[in-house]
Structure formats: C-alpha cells, structure tokens
C-alpha cells in the first residue's frame, strides 16, 4: 500500500467504495472537533454514544429486514406503543422483568403481524408495514389519548438503571448497544440464519429453489425488527422516566438513513452489522454535532438528507465503475 503504483486501480475503487463512508465520517468528526469547542470532550462523546444506543439497536433489527430485501415502515410508531405498554405493565405490577417481557412480546407481535402480511399473504412490505404503523399509531393514541405516562417514585431501581445507569463512567445503554452490535455481527456473518437472510436478499427465487423456507425467514426478520424496537423503546422510556406516545417516531427516518449508509459500507450492497454501527454513529454524530453548533433542528434534517444521498450516490457510482471494469 506504500507505493501507489503497486495498487491496482480497481482495488483503490473497491477500497473507496467500502471505506469511503468511514473516511467521510472521520472527516465530519474532525470538522466538528475543530469547529466546536464542546464536541470532542469525553463527556460529550459518552453522551453521543448514549444517544446513539437506541438508534443503533433499532437499526440493527432493521438490518435483518433489509438484509433479506425487505423494508419496515412501522418501527417509529411501534416504539411509541411499546413505551406505553412497558410503562403500564411496570406501573401496575412494579415488576421490571414482567414489563420487559410485555414490551418484547408486543414488539414481536407487531413483527409477527408485519411478517405474516408481507411474507405469507404477499403484500408489498412498504405498504403493509406503513399501514400497520398507522394502526399502531391509532392504538397508542387510543390507549393514552396522547398523554404521557409518568413513572411514580417507587418503581424498581433497575427500571431506571437501564436507561440512566452507569458502569464506571460508561452509560449502561452503551454497554447494551455494544453487546447487541457484537451479537448481530456474529449472527449475520457466522450463522446459517445470517447466511440465509442475505441469500434471500440477494436472490429470493434462487433461495427458494435452494430449499430455504423464504417465507419463514422473512417473517423471522420482521420479528427480530419488532424485538429490537422493543429493547430500544424500553431504554428510551427508562431514560425519560416516562412513556411518551410520540417518542421514538424520529427513529424511523434515522434508522432508514442508517441502514442505507450501512449498505454503502463493507458489504456488496447489503447492510451489515458493522456498517449499521458506523452508520448509526454518523447519524447520531450529525445530530449531536449540529446541536453543539446551535444549528436549528430543521436545518439538521436538511443536512442529514444531503449526507445520506451523498453517501449512497458515491457508493452507487463507485460500484458501477467497478462493474464496468470487470
């Protein structure tokens, strides 16, 4: 790599395609660090990691769906519903584990419904999950009339530790996030489940002919997505100390952005666990850095959109260049 002449041009393009997004992220990071006094401090970096933990976990679930070639539009609204379910069960039973179980069951149920409609009934995933998202939105409004549910003072300690606690200086959600990142990378790259999911994303018909139960695996990806939303929603509710029916809605657009960024990195056009982690870092870093610079929130949306389009365009252009050469 020292002598540029020895590097094949194709390899350079391939390198750019796989790591260009990471280099871009490093560039943005450096700019923030230089421009903002408060950005590159230990406290802010730990806060950034805590902020990104929920988005990362949701996007990791989305990675499964997108890896199998699907799409899940219901995640934002589902997060809100699970906030409420978690809080309601927690308050009425005072049992954190029961509440957690209810939240995960609720997420899995939404995933089951999504997956059944998409994989077994055969509706287009975009429309079906969008409609389910709408139903979920209606349900949570019906339950709460739009009002938040506040935790009373005597809830179990662990229920606030999940979102607010620290291990040493590290926020606990960050530890959870890292655990899930490692778990997902492992499952997607090393196990039959991951292999089959990407095979379905790569060619669903060939996967069917190869004996893979395509419907069942697609259903599984939606259930995983639902469960990951549940885990993120529990962290969110715990952190806020209250269940906000509308909290978590921004996860939808951010998770989509993260997974598209993820497809531009490392893999061959499919989202990967590590790519999703880096993508979530980029999106969260933009949110955090722009806030640090006192950029109004509406301008943050514009910037995020531009960055995502930029990243995807570059990776598509580079991929095309590679294909033509081969």
């Amino acid at each position: 790599m020292d002598k540029p002449t020895s590097v094949n041009k194709n390899q350079r393009i391939e390198f750019l395609r796989k790591y260009g997004t990471v280099l871009g992220a490093m560039l943005i990071f450096t700019i923030f660090a230089v421009v903002s006094k408060n950005f590159f401090t230990l406290n802010n970096q730990l806060m950034l990691l805590r902020q990104m933990s929920m988005l990362t976990i949701i996007a990791l679930g989305f990675t499964f769906v997108m890896g199998a070639g699907g799409f899940d539009m219901s995640i934002g609204n589902t997060a809100g519903l699970i906030n409420i379910i978690f809080a309601m069960v927690l308050i009425s039973t005072r049992n954190f584990w029961l509440a957690l179980g209810a939240a995960i069951a609720c997420g899995a149920l939404v995933g089951l419904v999504n997956g059944t409609i998409v994989a077994y009934i055969g509706l287009p995933d975009f429309i079906a999950t969008f409609a389910i998202g709408s139903i979920v939105y209606g349900l949570k409004m019906l339950i709460t009339r739009g009002n938040p549910i506040f935790f009373p003072a005597d809830i179990p300690k662990i229920a606030s530790f999940i979102g607010q606690g620290y291990v040493g200086r590290i926020p606990f959600p960050v530890i959870l996030m890292l655990f899930f990142v490692v778990l997902v990378i492992f499952v997607l790259t090393k196990t039959t489940l991951g292999r089959r999911i990407y095979a379905i994303g790569g060619n669903p018909v060939a996967s069917l002919y190869a004996g893979i139960n395509v419907k069942r695996y697609r259903l599984i990806t939606f259930i995983i997505s639902g469960i990951s939303v549940a885990i993120a929603a529990v962290i969110l509710t715990s952190r806020l100390g209250s269940a906000q029916p509308l909290a978590g809605e921004e996860f939808l657009l951010d998770a989509i952005a993260v997974c598209f960024l993820s497809t531009t990195m490392f893999g061959d056009g499919e989202p990967t666990g590590s790519g999703t982690f880096v993508g979530a870092f980029i999106i969260s870093m933009m949110n955090n850095g722009l806030t640090m610079l006192n950029v109004p929130y509406y301008f943050q949306y514009i910037t995020k959109g531009v960055v995502v389009i930029f990243a995807v365009v570059i990776s598509v252009v580079l991929a095309k260049k590679l294909k033509l050469k081969l």
Binding site: G202, N203, V205
Partner: peptide, 8 residues
C-alpha cells in the same frame, strides 16, 4: 434468476 445468489 433461479439458481445463483449473484453477490455471494
């Protein structure tokens, strides 16, 4: 269409 997973 039915045999390969092209990116694999």
């Amino acid at each position: 269409a039915e045999g390969l997973v092209p990116n694999y």
